[in-house]
Design a binder for these strands. Sequence first.
DNA 1: CATCAGGGCCCTG
DNA 2: CAGGGCCCTGAT
Length: 317
Amino acid sequence: MEKLKLIFSKIIYPKAPYNFDYSVHNPSHYPTPLVKYEKGKLWFSFRFGDKLLGIKFTNSGSINKPAVKIQIYYNDELSKDYLKELLKELSYRFQFEKDYSEFYKKFEKDVLVGKVLKKFKGMHGFCIEGLYEYLMIAILLQNANIKRTVQMTNSMLGNYGDKINFDGVNLFAIWKPERLINVPEEELRKLKVGYRAKSFLRATKDFLELDEFAMRKLNDSELRKELLKIYGVGPASVDYIMIGVFNREILNTIPPWETKIYSKLLKLNTTSSQRIMNFLDKNYGKYRFNIIGYLFADISWKHKLKRINWLEKLLPY
DNA sequence: CATCAGGGCCCTG
DNA sequence: CAGGGCCCTGAT
């Protein structure tokens, strides 16, 4: 295990309103040892430009006067240029600069969602993972329930992940693609990941041919096309990757189990994906993606703090 | 105890 | 485009 020391510290000021906790933690994500969250604090492993860092965020402001202390841990010095690029990348992944004011102004008084928007005002989208990490996670999620996903994740990390220690916390990082590419498929299969063994290897191989940063410049349909070329990425994963890794605000279909949630929250008496979509389109237009995001955040946080009975059957943990 | 649906993707027909 | 196969969990 690598013990990292504090190398750099800086306070940054996200675009207000910014709610720290809602913008760095999503209770609907399955638990992994890649990240640790406590109210007002976030620790995570971060591979950037071939260096594996430990990063800690501390909330140092308020929703209307936001400030985040960023501390970087590493085992060596970091150049000015590297740190500059790193901060830029963190700003991208955590949407520090994103302005949601128009959205709030428009729907704050909405009968159905106004209350939720007020409660979650200042929630920015975020995705800690880069394309490679997210690809691996997408494969871990496919055809599996949470329990199985967690078990597969831990055995993969235990065997190929990198362990770091900083600020008193132990975390893993997803293995480097170059590390996994040479592992025989049979060895992976012993970890009870099933046919995913092949997907990990082929997706890794495909990834090594890609330029994630160039892909950010593609439009939605070009990007989708490129992502679908990656072995193991299909219509379900591609949406999550586009939303997470590439910050695209898309909402094409609603998975069957989620339709049950939204029909309830939006007081609709239908669970038809198409009808819910039409309703969202008509009432919220281009903001329908954000509306769903806020509604989903609301029930996820409620569920985290106090189990919701009717949700228990839908959310597996 | 044994079946078998379900979940997301690839591949074949 | 439809449908079988992959792999395991959990419901029947």
